[in-house]
């Protein structure tokens, strides 16, 4: 446990600093109240609104651990949302609707994984194919409009609450825990890391690297489908043009802020989740603080740069060096 805390310390400190920073501009940021049926407050909103990024980040972490990248997750969200909205409006019932949407995510992952692992296309190119063409598929399903529904069961996924906690929060937490446990209680974590560090060596040691690669892209597709379901349930409609638009970049950013290397290998799902919370805190914080919209991206970019610079290994090495130089002098 101590090792994990040490590994995640920069992310936890960053998040705490951000919460403090937003509180300066919006003092009620950490207030949480109970309105009789659920908890409400800006922090609860962050925990709820981080669902899509957090879910995507879980899958993205695994893909990045294999030295890959999945640019298609935003589009897969739109496809899964479109499938779900179509299924629920066609009267297929909630269980079948969810199954179909998740199957769409898995199929998208299988496609990406096959392109990467079997055909051998670079991940960034392979997933770009689906990223650019997939919205067309989603638009075909929704026939170009926002496909709305009113099924209360489906809507619950977006706006319901369990023990006062928003359901999307429960969903991303459960997903993250499930994946983390799956990775560390089985050998999948090791096999993914080994494939990411050195695919050739892993294959020679008998690791079925092809299957591992396909599996991580399918996991990413599954997480993207979950995110798509949440987003669709949230607005009670499938918006093929906008659902998950550019969210793949936030997901990648979450993984990187979470301290995972884009060069693959060692990964931490908990780190990526913290990264997602950091990004969502920035997003929500900007709106709450009341700056004009024109500043949104500048503020976000500025904060992200500061965070990444503070986390960079070079800087921490410099810091250790500086300390070693300065501290003895101070002792004099």
């Amino acid at each position: 446990m101590g090792r994990m805390a040490r590994r995640l310390a920069p992310q936890i400190l960053t998040l705490a600093a951000l919460v403090a920073l937003v509180s300066v501009f919006f003092p009620n940021f950490i207030n949480i109240s109970f309105d009789g049926s659920r908890f409400v407050g800006p922090i609860i909103d962050v925990l709820k609104r981080s669902a899509p990024i957090a879910l995507l980040a879980v899958g993205m972490t695994l893909v990045i651990a294999t030295r890959g990248i999945d640019l298609s997750v935003g589009t897969v969200m739109a496809i899964a949302g479109a499938v779900a909205a179509w299924a629920i409006t066609s009267g297929l019932g909630l269980p079948l609707t969810l199954a179909l949407a998740l199957a769409a995510g898995l199929a998208a992952g299988l496609w990406n994984g096959a392109l990467v692992a079997i055909i051998g296309i670079q991940p960034i190119v392979a997933t770009l194919i689906l990223m650019t063409s997939g919205r067309g598929i989603a638009q075909l399903i929704t026939e170009g409009r926002i496909l709305t529904f009113s099924d209360p069961g489906f809507a619950f996924i977006g706006s319901g609450a369990v023990f006062g906690i928003p359901f999307p929060t429960v969903l991303w937490m459960a997903t993250a825990v499930a994946f983390a446990v799956l990775m560390r209680r089985t050998a999948l974590g090791l096999l993914i890391e080994a494939t990411g560090v050195n695919r050739a060596a892993s294959a020679l040691a008998g690791v079925n690297a092809t299957v591992i690669l396909i599996a991580v892209y399918m996991a990413s597709g599954l997480c993207a489908a979950l995110a798509g379901i949440v987003t669709t349930a949230d607005i009670r409609g499938a918006d093929a043009n906008n659902a998950g638009l550019w969210l793949e970049l936030d997901a990648i950013l979450a993984v990187v802020i979470g301290g995972n290397s884009l060069l693959g290998g060692r990964f931490s799902i908990a780190g990526s989740i913290l990264g997602a919370l950091i990004i969502q805190t920035i997003n929500t914080g900007i709106v709450l603080s009341g700056f004009p919209s024109e500043y949104n991206l500048v503020i976000k970019a500025g904060l992200v740069i500061i965070i990444l610079v503070l986390q960079s290994p070079n800087l921490s090495a410099d810091w250790i060096y500086l300390r070693s130089v300065l501290l003895p002098r101070r002792a004099d």
Binding site: L190, E193, A194, V197, N198, A200, A201, S202, L204, A205, V207, G265, R266
Partner: peptide, 15 residues
């Protein structure tokens, strides 16, 4: 083709 450099000695042995 042999080692997974970032992984530990233990993990490389049991891979």
């Amino acid at each position: 083709d042999g080692i997974a450099a970032e992984l530990s000695v233990r993990e490389n042995i049991i891979l």
